[in-house]
Design a protein around this nucleic acid. Structure first.
Lengths: 216, 216
DNA sequence: CCGTTCGGAGTACGAGTGTTCACTGACTCA
DNA sequence: TGAGTCAGTGAACACTCGTACTCCGAACGG
């Protein structure tokens, strides 16, 4: 009951499909998706332009597939990191380290995400936004199950999750700009930022209580 | 002693230059700079392709000019907002309101910045990064001159300034995605986020002191 | 085993691209 | 006023692009 019972036919099809994805990713290192040509991709992948249509309708569709490939496999990973360590300085370091490791391992994928998050291709933007929203929800859910989250509203948890996710994205693109030699410094600053947010989180309810008294 | 003593010649030149910039900005609403064609711009501006070279060497150079036009006039504005209000909830609201107003007034400019901040054109990325770094320094400087900043290191001030600037950028792009009808909700969440950071800021030194004891 | 399916090749088309060149004519300035 | 500057023109260059055809041949399924 293998998950890939494909015959020779489908295997080859998937192989060239992957070749197209890889070629596109390599080309996208120095340009953005909206300027990526169909022929350009097929040339780099070693197939004819017409073959492209057997796999994707558009370069936009290829972009969406790249989004899935990059972010689809990351779900659960955040929750795992948040769960395996307690609410402490250690968890913060672990989170940043995990990000740095992933970015270092496959920089092209994350550069693509950072670039197209606000890029010119609508469907790709939407796909990235959807994935990031899911991440934010996962983080919010994970944080909500901790003792420190007592008294937090659903909305505030989501706000906090979004804050963490956005900072994750910022950190990845900063890491990419800095390159391997600047990684240590970027990690240092990212940790400081996260620590500040964590401190704010710890005192959030005090302030909210004050707010309730002062405003209502 | 006018600041623009230009003759008819230079006036016309500046006029078509501005026409090129405006046309490019309009076209960039639905695509990114790396896919923007020189001819496309000149067609929209109502001039011949050759005329383009009288003003810019590249579409990349045009992009850099757009960055200056958008962000160059914003310096000092942040410092002004931070200075005119005390360290309070009011300042926070004012800051977000100023951002929302600017984005609402010239959405195309800010969409351009958000899109090209991590876009495929190197020089433009560099120009945006340089401007944002200046913003971060200005914010850090403004915060450093306040009573609440006693005991803060230069580096931490810069970290904080960068945090605020990055959130300003995130907020602008979120505003753009949400459109006018979703503005109120985005503003609400942005204020909450800023408040959380502000709370963290207020308790930063306590934590640092603990840290000093625990670590060193 | 044999007919069908289908991933991919090859060719061709029209449209659009960046860049160069010689040229024009209105503005500038001595 | 007359020579010179220069923003903008128009035609031509040698490309690349996306897409629509027809066709091939290996893998498939009954």
């Amino acid at each position: 009951m293998s998950h890939t019972p494909a015959g020779i036919r489908q295997t080859q099809k998937l192989r060239t499909r992957q070749a197209l994805l890889d070629a596109a990713l390599a080309l996208l290192e120095h340009q953005s998706l909206s300027s990526l040509g169909l022929r350009e991709v097929t040339r780099a992948a070693g197939v004819t332009p017409t073959a492209f249509y057997r796999h994707f309708e558009d370069t936009a569709a290829l972009g969406v597939a790249l989004v899935e490939e990059t972010l689809g496999s990351l779900h659960g990973l955040i929750a795992a990191v948040l769960a395996e360590t307690g609410d402490s300085e250690e968890r913060l370091d672990r989170s940043v380290a995990v990000i740095a490791r992933h970015v270092g391992a496959q920089p092209a994928h994350f550069r693509f995400i950072a670039r197209e998050q606000h890029g010119g291709v609508g469907p790709v933007r939407a796909a990235i936004a959807a994935q990031l929203r899911r991440f934010a929800e996962e983080v919010a859910c994970a944080l909500g199950q901790e003792p420190g989250a007592a008294g937090w509203s659903e909305e505030d948890l989501l706000m906090l999750g979004g804050l963490y996710v956005d900072h994750m994205v910022i950190t990845t693109s900063t890491l990419l700009e800095a390159g391997p030699e600047g990684e240590a410094e970027v990690v240092r600053v990212a940790r400081r930022r996260l620590r500040l947010v964590t401190i704010g989180r710890a005192h959030w309810l005090d302030e909210a209580a004050q707010d309730g008294i002062a405003r209502t």
